[in-house]
């Protein structure tokens, strides 16, 4: 069975593996603190607190297993007239954004992203439904992509 997410004439670029770290750090902090607190309470107060410790700990373990696969699943490809972005392991999706439909391009990097040398490129069309973002790009690549998208968009400029 052919997968609709593998168009035959497309070579996919993957994003930086450092995105795994960038995604796991916030999760580890927000889930790790309740887990540690739960363990401490379970040891000191009552064994019932193992439940409190267990839920975040399992979620944390799950995210350690899932996030690397998710990051590997993110891909983008520049074709002559449009940009393809795909993502998802269980729930997969793929977006085609024609260059001529782009209204503007955002490049964003939070403090953690900057430290890890990552940036996110987001494309906006006139539709709010367009969910076209490429997270985890090295800044050089993000800048290159931004300029390229902007110039291609200009060359194929159309109204709405």
């Amino acid at each position: 069975m052919t997968s609709p997410f593998e168009p035959h004439d497309v070579t996919w670029n993957s994003v930086s593996p450092r995105l795994v770290t960038a995604r796991l750090v916030p999760g580890t902090i927000s889930l790790g603190i309740p887990a540690v607190a739960g363990i401490a309470l379970a040891v000191t107060v009552s064994p019932w607190f193992w439940i409190l410790a267990g839920v975040p700990a399992v979620s944390l373990l799950w995210s350690f297993l899932l996030v690397p696969r998710q990051v590997r699943a993110i891909g983008y490809a520049e074709r002559d007239d449009d940009l393809l972005i795909r993502k998802g392991v269980m729930f997969r999706s793929m977006v085609v954004v024609p260059y001529g439909r782009m209204q503007y391009v955002d490049v964003e990097a939070g403090p953690l992203d900057r430290r890890l040398g990552l940036a996110k490129v987001q494309l906006h069309t006139a539709s709010v439904g367009t969910d076209a973002q490429i997270p985890g790009l090295p800044p050089d690549e993000a800048a290159r992509l931004r300029d390229r998208l902007a110039s291609r968009g200009e060359a194929r400029l159309a109204g709405l």
């Binding site: 997410f5 998802g88 997969r92 793929m94 085609v96 024609p98 439909r101 069309t125």
Partner: peptide, 15 residues
């Protein structure tokens, strides 16, 4: 000519 962008999606059952 009014198409903005296109998307495909597939959940586990659909796959």
């Amino acid at each position: 000519e009014r198409t903005q962008s296109l998307a495909l999606s597939q959940g586990p059952w659909q796959r």
